[in-house]
Simulated assay, not measured.
Amino acid sequence: MRVPLYQAKAEFFRMLGHPVRIRVLELLQDGPKPVRDLLAAIGIEPSSLSQQLAVLRRSGIVTAAREGSTVVYALAGDEVAQLLATARRILAQVLTGQEELLTELRSAAADGPGTTGEEQ
């Protein structure tokens, strides 16, 4: 049985839905990195990083290559970096909207109780 596209997309976004995985992807945007560099930048237990890297590897959005005794991770393609850039732009827009709402709420509170800052 074939999985509907919307379900496959949901699974993809669920896979991305972990802060460590997002951080790894952000770090890999600058180019391939050995595990030791990822560990130093993220500051978590090696076993936790290993679990998250395994999820990313299984999904196919990162690759792993052994260079001697070191494993080096890289993004599998430019699309992931583009997705992260798009997510940053969307988040900036959302947060800007929230900041504007917060400013409006503070202004209404400063006007005194029972006022909303809107014309009636």
Score class of each variant (00 low, 15 high):
Gln120Arg: 13
Ala110Ser: 11
Ile90His: 11
Glu104Met: 08
Ser50Ile: 04
Arg58Ile: 01
Glu99Gly: 05
Val62Cys: 01
Leu25Asp: 02
Leu39Met: 06
Leu25Gln: 03
Val80Met: 15
Ile44Tyr: 04
Ala74Asn: 11
Ile61Asn: 00
Arg106Ala: 12
Gly43Cys: 06
Thr70Arg: 10
Val71Gly: 03
Gln7Tyr: 12
Gln82Cys: 12
Gln82Pro: 02
Ala85Phe: 08
Gln29Pro: 06
Glu100Gly: 02
Leu105Tyr: 14
Ala74Ser: 15
Ile22Lys: 06
Ser47Asp: 12
Gly68Pro: 08
Leu38Lys: 00
Glu104Lys: 13
Leu102Cys: 07
Gln93Glu: 12
Ile61Tyr: 03
Ala108Phe: 06
Arg88Gly: 00
Gln29Asp: 04
Arg106Pro: 01
Arg21Leu: 01
Val94Gly: 04
Glu26Ala: 01
Asp37Glu: 15
Gln120Ser: 11
Gly117Phe: 11
Gly77Thr: 11
Pro32Thr: 03
Gln82Gly: 13
Val35Lys: 15
Leu105Ser: 11
Pro46Ala: 10
Ala76Gly: 07
Val24Phe: 02
Leu49Asp: 01
Arg66Thr: 10
Ala85Asp: 15
Leu39Gln: 05
Met1Trp: 01
His18Gln: 01
Val35Tyr: 05
Gln52Ala: 02
Ala41Thr: 06
Glu67Gly: 04
Ala10Asp: 07
Gly97Arg: 07
Pro46Phe: 08
Ala64Ser: 09
Arg106Val: 08
Glu45Asn: 12
Ser48Leu: 09
Thr70Lys: 08
Arg66Phe: 06
Ile42Val: 09
Asp111Leu: 15
Leu25Ala: 03
Tyr73Pro: 05
Tyr6Ala: 12
Leu84Pro: 04
Val80Thr: 15
Asp37Asn: 12
Ile90Asp: 03
Leu105Phe: 14
Phe12Val: 02
Asp30Pro: 02
Arg23Asn: 12
Ala8Met: 14
Leu75Val: 04
Arg57Gly: 00
Ser69Cys: 02
Pro19Phe: 02
Tyr6His: 13
Met15Lys: 03
Val55Ala: 11
Arg58Ala: 12
Arg88His: 07
Leu39Ile: 04
Thr96Val: 02
Leu101Ala: 09
Arg66Ala: 09
Val62Pro: 01
Ile90Lys: 08
Glu11Thr: 03
Phe13Glu: 03
Ala109Asp: 09
Glu99Val: 10
Val94Asp: 07
Arg2Asn: 11
Gln7Val: 15
Leu102Gly: 04
Thr96Glu: 13
Leu53Lys: 00
Arg2Ala: 14
Arg88Asn: 04
Gln120Phe: 14
Ala54Ile: 10
Glu67Phe: 08
Pro113Glu: 14
Leu38Gln: 00
Leu91Asn: 08
Pro4Arg: 13
Ala54Asn: 13
Gln82Leu: 15
Glu119Trp: 15
Val80Ala: 10
